[in-house]
Simulated scan of single mutants.
Amino acid sequence: MMKRSLLLAGALAALTTAAPAEAESPMVHLVLKFVKDKPTRGPAVVLDPVSCPACVVGHDPGFERDNARETLVELRVPAQRSLELAFDSQPGMRRVLLETTDLPFRREGNRLLVALAPLHGDLVDTGEFSTHIVEPGMVLRFEHADPARLAGDYAGKPLPKVQREAANVLEFAEREAIREIGLGEHVAREGLGVIEIMGFDTNEPHGHKDSPPHMHMHLRWPFNIGTQIGHYYLSPEGLLQHNQAGATGFHLPAHDYAPGEPFTTIDNRGRPAYTQTITPEGWLKLTAPLPGGNCLIRPVGQGFASGASVACDGHASQTVQVSDDLEHGVLRVTTGTVIETFRYDRDNGLLLSPTEAPRMPDGTIVPISRTEFPLAHAAATPFAAPGSD
């Protein structure tokens, strides 16, 4: 009995003197972009682990990146903590970005100190280089193809210039068709989600290979519960070849739609929202169950890189041309006689052009509905002519 008591006492003593097990801190996954003020080779920064012993540097090539324009650093850092990260740095770092947000930083000798606010979730899209144009029921994501940023399946190869320019035109041609049909307003009014128009990335942001060259127009349902996503692949001549489509969140096999085979996108209530069909010529038909809801999008030349003609029922045909000036960060879209100019941040693609009209005075009455009702004796009460009194 004495022996058992001694053993128990020893075990209790060991428990009380042993170091407590450390609880695992929640971490968030992020990518920081260090923008160089002039082209250089080799990583511009390296994390000093002493500044954040709990941080973990990642080396996934889909997130970690270095090119002449920028260095992308992949990190896992403690969640909801105010951190100041120190990096051994080359001179000439002009910006530090997290997503499209500039982070405050300062230099101390060869070290760069970056202040990081408490983070509650992963932020890994910093490597994207695209501009988002938002309209009712629709968002257009325009990807900028920078030869200095080519990565993934496009690294070490010539820029797919014709396909990228074809995708540029098709994105804005679809936007024009959506406007003329009134499809975006319909989606917004009915609460069906948002139509997303996209091309393809050439810089593999967040590991997104996005190849071969293609474009999209899909309806993302509310609460992101699922999306039918079509991939409209482009030929070297800039024409549409076929559409490979599947549905996210439902583990369904993708189906390949050949020219002439319609692909119908349904809304979150199971109703047809719109149908897209690649023609035998490599053009695109867009139809929707709305008045005048039939459009044909065809190239003005050999392929869509030359521009597109958009012809919708009840509307005059419109020619769409697109140019992207990477050096100055200017995207110009010509639709008929209308020239639109979108200025964007050359480091991350953030739209800089104004997007909201001036605010109306507080006393302005904005009609939100129309009601008609008879006024008693209205016809028997003549109004005095101006100046008659």
Rank of each mutant, 00 (worst) to 15 (best):
R4P: 05
R4E: 01
P20K: 11
P20G: 07
A23K: 15
A23I: 10
E24C: 10
M27Y: 06
H29L: 03
H29R: 11
P39Q: 02
G42Q: 03
V50K: 09
C52G: 09
V56M: 14
H59P: 01
D60M: 04
G62D: 03
R65K: 11
R69C: 10
L72Q: 11
E74G: 15
R76W: 03
Q90D: 05
P91N: 07
G92W: 09
G92I: 14
M93F: 03
L97R: 13
D102T: 13
R107I: 00
L112Q: 04
A115L: 11
F129E: 02
V134K: 13
P136C: 01
L140N: 07
H144V: 02
P147T: 12
A148E: 03
R149M: 06
L150P: 13
A155V: 00
A166D: 03
A167S: 12
N168C: 03
N168Q: 07
A173Y: 01
I181V: 15
L183G: 05
H186W: 13
A188Q: 15
R189L: 09
G191T: 11
E196I: 15
I197Y: 07
G199Y: 04
D201K: 15
D210W: 01
M215L: 10
L219V: 03
R220W: 08
G230V: 00
G230I: 02
L234F: 08
L239N: 10
L239W: 02
L239M: 07
L240A: 02
A247I: 09
H251L: 04
P253S: 08
A254E: 10
A258P: 04
G260D: 05
E261I: 06
T264F: 04
T264Y: 09
D267Y: 06
A273N: 10
Y274H: 07
T277G: 05
I278S: 05
P280N: 05
W283G: 07
W283Y: 02
K285S: 02
P289G: 13
L290S: 10
G293A: 07
N294F: 07
C295V: 11
C295R: 12
S306F: 06
S306C: 05
G307H: 01
A311D: 05
G314N: 14
G314S: 10
A316F: 01
S323R: 15
S323G: 13
D325M: 08
L326M: 03
E327I: 01
H328Y: 04
V330A: 15
V333D: 00
V338Q: 12
E340Y: 06
D345H: 13
L352W: 05
E356R: 15
A357H: 06
A357S: 14
D362M: 08
I365V: 10
I365R: 12
V366N: 04
P367E: 01
A385M: 12
A385R: 14
P386C: 00
